[in-house]
Amino acid sequence: EQLQSLALLEERERIGMDLHDGAIQSIYAVVLRLEDCAERLSEPSDEVRAGLDKAMDDLNKVLQDIRSYIFDLRPQVLHGDLEKALDDLVQSVRVNALIDAELEVEGDLNGALTEEQAVPLFHIAQEAVNNVNRHAQATSLRVKVTAQSRSVRLEIVDNGVGFDLEDGKASDGHGLRNMDDRARSLGAHLSLESSPGRGTRVRVELPLADVRQ
């Protein structure tokens, strides 16, 4: 079973690399050629110009979709190092989603958490970052973790389109229930701030003393 899981992870990684090195580069080359053709046309009609602009816009959307698929394909594992896993997650967003993402860690994160606490906390961060990648249309993302003697706080903040917290369909579509369930399983509290046009903030407060009693 472990060999099958390893083979599956390796296959997912290979597919992601093939998409990045093959399909993305080919589509990007087509976009550049279309842009060159548009510049070479001395006085294109409005219809021709609109058609070229639409084609380039559609191809750019395809590129973004493929980058999102690659992001979902690449496995994220802890290996006992939550800080490294979070850094890999953030770097993957920078490369594949072209979002200005950064990680800030305060305190001894790995020393503060057990493996049983670190894994669900990472999955919450992963789900929140996936939401930014899929829905937020953000250009900036900040993941901050603060480890103190009696608590750990995780925050994921983006500058995207946000959404209405009262909209049940939007909430369900953003995987909020899964994140909340994971937080509750830890004895942590998850809170969410968002509104249309003003980005989203996900915050998890994990009281270590309560969990370890």
Rank of each mutant, 00 (worst) to 15 (best):
V119E: 11
I70G: 02
N133G: 00
E205M: 08
L6T: 09
G199N: 04
R14L: 14
G197T: 12
D21H: 08
T114N: 04
S185V: 02
T139E: 10
E1C: 01
R12T: 03
N131C: 03
K169A: 15
V204I: 13
A209I: 15
A188N: 04
T114D: 10
L208W: 09
E127K: 10
L78N: 02
E10T: 08
D167K: 10
E10M: 07
R49C: 00
L8S: 04
A170V: 05
R14V: 00
D53K: 12
V90R: 00
P196N: 08
A118H: 05
A55H: 11
G173T: 07
L103P: 06
A101V: 03
D88E: 12
H79A: 07
L190S: 01
N159V: 03
V152K: 09
V93A: 04
V31Y: 01
Q64D: 08
L63P: 03
R33I: 09
L82D: 01
V93R: 07
R40I: 00
S151F: 08
L6R: 12
E166W: 03
R184M: 06
P207M: 01
L52E: 01
A188K: 11
S92K: 15
V30M: 12
V77W: 05
L86P: 01
V48F: 01
I124P: 14
R33C: 02
H135I: 07
L176I: 14
A38W: 00
R201T: 12
L86I: 02
L89E: 11
Q137T: 12
K61M: 15
S171W: 13
N131P: 05
D158N: 14
P207L: 06
A23L: 14
T114L: 10
A55M: 14
D65W: 06
M17F: 08
V90P: 02
D172W: 13
L3E: 15
D46G: 10
S151K: 08
L73I: 05
S92R: 15
S45A: 08
L32A: 09
H189W: 08
S171T: 13
R40D: 04
V132T: 15
V77N: 06
M179F: 11
L165E: 06
E116D: 12
R14K: 14
R150I: 11
L63H: 05
L113F: 04
E166R: 11
I99L: 05
V132A: 13
